[in-house]
Simulated scan of single mutants.
Amino acid sequence: MALSYIRSLRSMNIPKELIQMGGCRTFAVGSKSKKGGKGGAAADASKASTISNEVKATAVVGANILKDGANPKILQDSEYSGWLWHLLDKRPALSELRRKDIESLPYEDLKRFVKLDNRDRIKENNSIRAKN
């Protein structure tokens, strides 16, 4: 039924201003002059070729979120903070931390243990309350 309604709307010439005022949603219709199907891969390829290799090597392309801003420059490794290089290090799971002696844990692991243990207790209490 909805499909026939949409088809009947397509055959009618309704101004866009009237549709926007009425609150009726419309669906995007792709241009028939495009070749290559959905996704616009051909358009993306032409954009990628316009970016020079020099820009790619000196700036983080696509990291700019401001209208008037520029892409941030790539710095030397020594110019970045030390904590940055440890972001992807594996940290112990809660089960592994529970097996260790709490008194001998380093401060960072102890802080992680408390956070994960609290989160686990909250989830357990929520599941018990949901069953009742």
Rank of each mutant, 00 (worst) to 15 (best):
F27D: 09
T26L: 00
E54A: 12
A57H: 03
A59N: 00
A63M: 09
D68Q: 08
T50F: 03
D68S: 13
A48F: 13
G37T: 03
K34H: 13
T50N: 06
V61I: 11
T58S: 12
G22P: 04
R25T: 05
V55T: 10
G39C: 13
G22Y: 04
T26H: 03
V29K: 03
I65H: 12
T26V: 07
V60G: 01
N71S: 09
A45S: 13
E54Y: 10
K38A: 06
A45H: 08
S49P: 00
G37M: 01
S31H: 06
A70K: 15
S31I: 02
G37I: 02
T58K: 07
A28L: 11
G40N: 09
A48G: 13
A70C: 12
A57C: 06
S31R: 08
N53L: 10
G62L: 02
N64Q: 06
A43G: 14
S49N: 13
A48R: 14
A42Y: 15
A43K: 15
K56W: 04
S49R: 13
G62A: 02
N71W: 00
L66M: 11
P72C: 02
S33R: 13
V61P: 01
C24R: 07
A45V: 06
A48K: 15
S31P: 01
S49K: 14
A42K: 15
K34G: 04
K47T: 10
S46D: 09
K32E: 14
L66E: 08
G23N: 05
A42S: 15
M21T: 12
F27R: 11
M21N: 12
K47N: 12
A41W: 10
A41L: 14
S33E: 13
G62H: 03
T58V: 01
I51P: 00
V60E: 00
S33T: 12
F27W: 12
K47Q: 14
T50R: 07
G62T: 01
A70S: 15
A43I: 14
K47F: 11
G69K: 05
S33F: 09
K38S: 07
K67C: 03
A63I: 00
C24F: 09
S49F: 07
A59M: 05
A45R: 07
R25G: 00
G30L: 12
G23E: 04
G62Y: 03
T58P: 01
V60I: 10
S52P: 00
D44E: 15
V61K: 04
G23A: 06
V60P: 02
V29A: 05
